[in-house]
Each structure stands twice: as C-alpha cells, then as structure tokens.
C-alpha cells in the first residue's frame, strides 16, 4: 500500500508539475487584476513544442542535443528519491540525500554545457551566472539537509521528512523547521529562476539567467526543457512542503493529499512573492543566498548544540 502511494506520488508529480506554473501565473494575474492565461497553459505550450521539429545550429555538437534529455532524466530520477512529507520515496537508502542533490547538480551541469556548446557569448554569460548563483545556493540546501539529518538521526530523505514531526512553531523542532524552510525558500526561488533572482517572463533583458541559456533550443528540446523545469519546481516545492506540513496520519492517501495540497500552496506562495517583490539587483542576489546559508547553518548549530 505504502509503495503504491509512493508510486502514485511520482505519477501525480509528473502529471501535475506544469500545473504549478499555471497556479503561479494565475496568482500573479489576480494580483494584477487581470484574468490571466488558462491554468493549463503550460501543458498547451509543451504539447505544441513537442509536435514541432527541431532546428540545430551547425556550430553545435552532440553535447547540445544531449542537454535536454539528460536534464529531464536527472530530474525524474531525483523525483524517485524524493519523499513528500510522510509519503516515503520510491527509492530510499542511507545517503540518498547526497545523490539527490547531485542529480539536480547534474541537471544544471548538462544545461550549462549545452549553453556553452552553442558558442554564443550571451549564453555563456547566462551559464556563468547560473553557476555562480547555484554555487551559493548549494551550501544552503546541503546545510538544511544536514540540520534535518542530525535532528532526525537518519541519512535518507524519507527519514528526514517522515520522522521530522513539526511540533508546529514551538520548541527547538519548530525553530529548526522555520529556519530550514526560510533558507530553502530562497534556494527554491534561485534554482527555479523565480522573481527575486531571475524573471521567468523576460526574454529581452541582459539580466536574465535561466532563460538565456535555453535561447538556442527549439521544438522538442525546448518542450523537454520546459517540462523538466516544471518538474524541478515540483521537486523543490515538495521538499519544502514536506518539511513544513504537519500532515503525519496513519492513512497514506491522506498524507499524499495533504502533501499535494502543500505543494500547490507553495506554488501560490511563490506567486504572491512574485507579485509583491521586485527583482533584486544582480549584485544583491549573492547576499540573499549567503543569508539563506547562514540561516541553515544556524539550524545546524541549534541541532548540534
């Protein structure tokens, strides 16, 4: 039963991931007083792109074609390792949290390689920024994982979120939960190129990061990249929701429903942040990420004290 629910989580994640983008856009539209695009717009976009053919520049090599495929494969593999609150992951073993982090690292790496393979100075710039920011975001993510691992005494992601019962906001557990969540929220926004760090809507400005790396991809490749980005958003939102949500019942299906509701709530939160905040100056982004890492380090200190 528990395994079936775990598999159901992966299926739901694969099906619902583009919906998160729709939810974010709908929240932003409501804030702006617009009606907004359809909730399922991301699905239409991806379906349209998948029907198209791809055009490859003569300067690119197989690395460029490999990028989207490997990044989608890596993010789906990371989904298999990911628990959703009390819903354990399909694959869980001690130390899988490092594999999980490095699968996401692999995804970023192949995207950067594909961007560099085009030989475009513009894409190189985007790649450089992407790497710079994720270099600073990774300590925050890892320190948060270390804090929770030391607190729960397990080295597997499923143990981390499964046994970490948040006594809501009270006590050391609550403090650790809040610190790690705040830190991971910054990581989520950075890794998914959301607003305080990067604007997912601009294709014109010189300050964009993620979008600039995929400028030369088209057709099926772009569709795969957009889908992989949506799944990545789901992965981070599920991690955050899994830690924050106090849904730890004996019924796996209830846990799953609570977790999915939590993921949607995180998407709404991202929408609110995007509507109410302006993008940070590029020079201020590292400061935000260092602050996030400091919060996570504080959580580690609280656990180890």
């Amino acid at each position: 039963m528990a395994t079936a629910v775990s598999i159901l989580h992966v299926v739901l994640a694969l099906v619902l991931a583009p919906l998160l983008l729709g939810v974010i856009n709908r929240v932003k539209a409501k804030f702006a007083g617009r009606r907004g695009q359809p909730l399922l717009q991301a699905y239409y976009d991806i379906a349209k792109l998948l029907r198209k053919g791809a055009v490859y520049s003569r300067t690119t090599t197989w690395v460029f074609r490999l990028g989207p495929i490997v990044s989608l494969a890596a993010v789906v593999a990371s989904l298999l390792l990911l628990p959703l609150g009390a819903v354990v992951a399909v694959v869980a073993f001690p130390g899988d949290l490092l594999l999980w982090v490095y699968l996401l690292g692999l995804m970023r790496f192949v995207t950067v390689l594909a961007a560099l393979d085009t030989g475009s100075a513009f894409e190189g710039m985007g790649a450089s920024r992407e790497v710079q920011f994720s270099l600073l975001a990774e300590p925050a993510l890892l320190l948060g994982l270390v804090a929770l691992a030391a607190w729960s005494g397990g080295l597997s992601l499923s143990q981390l979120t499964g046994t970490h019962s948040t006594g809501w906001l009270t006590g050391t557990a609550g403090a650790i939960t809040l610190l790690v969540s705040a830190s991971w929220l910054a990581v989520l926004l950075t890794e998914n190129a959301r607003i305080p760090v990067d604007d997912p809507n601009t294709h014109l400005e010189l300050t964009m990061i993620h979008e600039v790396m995929v400028l030369d991809h088209g057709g099926v490749d772009l569709g795969l990249i957009q889908y992989a980005a949506a799944v990545k958003l789901w992965v981070f939102a599920a991690l955050l929701a899994g830690v924050l949500l106090p849904v730890r019942t004996a019924w796996p299906l209830v846990n799953l429903a609570g977790g999915v509701a939590g993921v949607l709530a995180v998407a709404m939160g991202v929408g609110v942040i995007e509507s109410t905040m302006a993008r940070l100056r590029l020079l201020r982004v590292p400061q935000m990420l260092v602050a996030a890492a400091v919060l996570a380090a504080l959580a580690v200190v609280l656990v180890l004290r």
Binding site: L169, T170, G171, T172, G174, L178, L179
Partner: peptide, 12 residues
Amino acid sequence: PWLDVIAVLLIL
C-alpha cells in the same frame, strides 16, 4: 517552548 522561538527570533 516559546522561549526558544523568541531566542531564535532574537538571533534573526
């Protein structure tokens, strides 16, 4: 338990 929370808020 709330004292812990206040302590963390002070640190923040």
